[in-house]
Design a protein around this nucleic acid. Structure first.
Lengths: 228, 228
DNA sequence: TTTTTAACCAATACAAAATTGATCACATAT
DNA sequence: ATATGTGATCAATTTTGTATTGGTTAAAAA
């Protein structure tokens, strides 16, 4: 038996008899090594073992804690946005939004269909890119609302927040002229129609195709380089 | 024409010719008033007008920014949790997690497979419900990590946060004894195996079946009434 | 060789100081 | 007398500086 194994045994014994503070934090490594009477290296090996087992978690500058690491649910958008990029966000949309659209086809009320059609009217009447974008965002969000699941809507909003944070500050050189992206119009209309006629699979397929085209335009910045 | 109207005109002209920093922030009021050569009060009136039009937004201690105010994703978890219920969260999981699992089968690295197997060992060795639950949460989260898409991981964490907020305080009367839910064990192992052998469709199917069984146990609270 | 110790690094927490939009009181001007 | 500019003050937020902590490496010691 190595001394590192001995440290692990001592650590387990200490954890078993000690009553931990409410936040589950245990002493910093340097003190803890003295308390247990082992070297810091051996203590770290023992802690690493318990961390692999998921019995505790550590973080630089914070400490060592018993249990599972809590997900920091706030300001997650900014951190994710820093680590991500427009393409990754687009890929996530292609994965998530079609199934939300599928649920919308199952659960949408006629009220939602009407609202979607109103969005199309507003989108066609848009006289600036800002108005067009607003109408488009609203359209996609109403689909999420129509899914009938508040949790799905919350996830959609989260995804949207990440998207905005990622493209935030990047080039947005589109003019103020209203877009002439009529192909996107027809795609939207087909999606709405498939929802109206209660065809979940078709809705998901059309939404996926629509987003994949948007991704294509994102990768190949031709005439239209905006995220719709 | 009042002096306040003149300030609005000067502000618009300044915004039209000046190139704004990437974050869209414009100078603090005191400096800005000097730059434009107007009083701070008139500048504030002009800014208020543009704020009403949604062309900019302001916040105390932060500054004035061009564009629409980013949504505060903060404390959204609590609001959603209030309006939702365990079944709805479960349904959202059944919709979301299978496709995340599908992506994991496509993108998982061998490191992730190893980690998943370690989770299974920890889950089998669990000697209390707490340890079992920790291992299970970690398993599902590693699958989300293995998807290779940070945005998907963020959405999974959000879903998890909502789940915890919803079931928080509700029935959780399971004893401290380790669970004998061996069927769940085999389901987990099959999912890991399907990921390891790169079968996206099978992975999604198995995850869906697994979660649907959890939902069944949630609706029919028999022997096992925990959300796994 | 292996283990321990020490030193240093990067990330985080915490507190103090500076910044900033909002608001009010008062002086000034027309 | 009303309106406008000026300054002070407040509360929210950012910034800055210091101490702490896990992570890492290399030298010292066994």
């Amino acid at each position: 038996m190595t001394t590192a194994d001995g440290a692990l045994i001592q650590l387990r014994a200490w954890l078993a008899q000690r009553k931990l503070p409410s936040n589950g934090r245990l002493p910093p490594e340097r003190e803890f090594a003295e308390i247990l009477g082992v070297s810091r290296g051996d203590l770290r090996k023992a802690l690493a073992t318990l961390e692999r087992n998921g019995e505790l978690w550590r973080q630089v500058g914070k400490g060592t804690f018993i249990g599972t690491k809590p997900v920091d649910e706030l300001s997650v958008v900014g951190k994710v946005a820093d680590q991500s990029n427009p393409l990754e966000v687009m890929n996530a949309r292609i994965i998530i939004e079609p199934i939300i659209c599928q649920q919308a086809a199952i659960n949408a009320a006629s009220m939602h269909i009407d609202e979607l059609n109103r969005c199309m009217v507003a989108q066609r009447a848009a006289q600036s890119w800002r108005q067009y974008e607003n109408a488009d965002n609203r359209l996609h969000r109403i689909i999420a609302i129509a899914s009938g699941n508040i949790v799905l809507l919350a996830l959609f909003d989260q995804l949207n927040a990440i998207r905005r944070a990622v493209v935030w500050g990047r080039l947005r050189q589109h003019s103020d002229a209203p877009p002439t992206n009529h192909h996107s119009f027809s795609q939207h209309e087909k999606i709405i129609a498939s929802i109206a006629q209660r065809d979940p699979e078709l809705s998901a397929l059309l939404m996926r195709e629509h987003l994949e085209e948007v991704r294509h335009n994102l990768i190949n910045p031709g005439k239209i380089a905006s995220i719709v």
